[in-house]
Design a protein around this nucleic acid. Structure first.
Length: 156
DNA sequence: GCCAACGTTGGC
DNA sequence: GCCAACGTTGGC
């Protein structure tokens, strides 16, 4: 699952540019970086989660079309220092390219995900979670993409 | 705007 | 290597 702030870049933006892919860059957390670098593969599908917005939740699915490569937004060398380019050693930060796949029938709100005991181990719903890239198990994936649409007015 | 939680930084 | 201070994230 990839988190994004729709004010910055949303699933809708990704859909609008399809079939062109977007470079998913700017990840500056080591745990998330390791996932991008080591776990995310071409062909993988990822859930796109909207955060810091009126309705936080899972919006849809994207597909990885280019696996981990040095984050182009992180190639600047320290001011005046020696180059820390791709040839100078291990790049610190990584990016992948993703392409729009599909939109979920309805946004699956964070509030609902939190109520599901089956998703208790999903990092997203854990207290204080700040991971912007996280693994999703097959069971969690199936549950989220098959989330039943709630009928309007249903109170309980 | 508030607050909880976490990561990073820097002094020692 | 410890730990306090600080900055950032992100839901509410």
């Amino acid at each position: 699952m990839f988190k994004t702030e729709p004010g910055e870049f949303s699933l809708g933006d990704l859909e609008a540019m399809a079939p062109r892919a977007e470079c998913w860059s700017g990840v500056r957390n080591y745990q998330a970086r390791n996932l991008l670098r080591d776990r995310v593969a071409v062909g993988d599908r990822v859930l796109i989660y909207h955060s810091s917005c009126p309705q936080p939740g899972v919006a849809g699915i994207a597909r990885v079309v280019r696996a981990g490569y040095p984050d182009p937004t992180a190639l600047q060398s320290p001011a005046g220092g020696t180059a820390l380019g791709p040839e100078a050693g291990e790049p610190r930060w990584f990016a992948v390219d993703v392409q729009f796949d599909s939109r979920l029938p309805a946004l699956v709100p964070l509030a609902e995900l939190k109520r599901s005991p089956a998703l208790a181990e999903l990092p997203l719903v854990k207290r204080g979670n700040r991971l912007s890239i996280m693994p999703v198990t097959e069971a969690q994936w199936q549950l989220i993409v098959g989330w039943p649409a709630v009928t309007a007015g249903e109170a309980t």
